[in-house]
Amino acid sequence: MAKTILEFEKPIIELEKKIEEMRSMSSDLDISNEIEALERRVNDLRKSIFSGLSRWQRVQLARHPDRPLTMDYLEMMETDFIELHGDRHFGDDHAIVGGFGQLDGKTIMFIGHQKGRDTKSNLYRNFGMANPEGYRKALRLMKMAEKFDKPVITLIDTPGAYPGIGAEERGQAESIARNLFEMCRLRVPIIVTIIGEGASGGALGIGIGDRILMMENTWYSVIAPESCSSILWRSWEYKEQAAEALKLTGEDLLELGVIDRIIEEPRGGAHRNPAEAAFILKNTLLEELEDLLKSTPDKRVKDRIKKFSSIGYYEE
């Protein structure tokens, strides 16, 4: 059961509680018909609420405190993950994790943003906001994957690259730019999945790949709705409008040609059934990987460059 309940989740959770209560009484009484009716109701309710989610509500789901994080998925997908640390230049960034793991017996280099669960772990993880050494660690690991011919899978979940003095001193912009360049020409397959928040250059810094996937309740854009609101509306109050205007959901971005596929989540969102969410994610990744491995390194790089080169809308 979810620990944090969003406003629009309330009616669903209340009904679910009621069903639970009735179940516990049903040993004495035969109320199975009533329970069945209630279950149908909760299903319909869930369907109607989740099919009509606003973009801002998606943003809220993407940030849900109970939503699985990178390390949770690595564990639930039974990857046997072994974490590798450090960029070999400055330090180890705790906002990006990376290392070897396996999927279905195949060795994979996994890289992902890592947020925390509570204040303490969030401070340790810098809320998933990476510094340059995070992007450089990611690049080091990707280069190693290339050397040993292992595919790369990245999981994106960040409110943005960290805007700090040290980050600028150590070249935040250069570290992201370098990753874009190097990821475009990496000779092994790269699959990118947005599992939560995909904010701006901080997301894109590990976001170049042959396939760009988005889980159903995530967002991906050039800026967070709150920041967009503060710049364009000159107030933090217009985040809902900003979220609408930015067209930041999976459906939007599939239509605009920015992403390749949406990964379905369990009913009510990944946080309601993390194990199932991980199961679906794993199967999708394996499917995409199998497809990519049929191609050659030259062809993959060529296709990847072509894929990103053709994004955009303009008039002559």
């Binding site: 874009l180 360049f181 701006s200 460059i305 080169s309």
Partner: peptide, 23 residues
């Protein structure tokens, strides 16, 4: 920086220019 009014499409221009520089 990237233009907000084109959302993720602007973000993708970062990828696009980098991809072209690889060529």
């Amino acid at each position: 920086g990237a233009r907000m009014m084109e959302g993720a499409l602007s973000l993708m221009q970062m990828a696009k220019t980098a991809a072209k520089l690889v060529q």
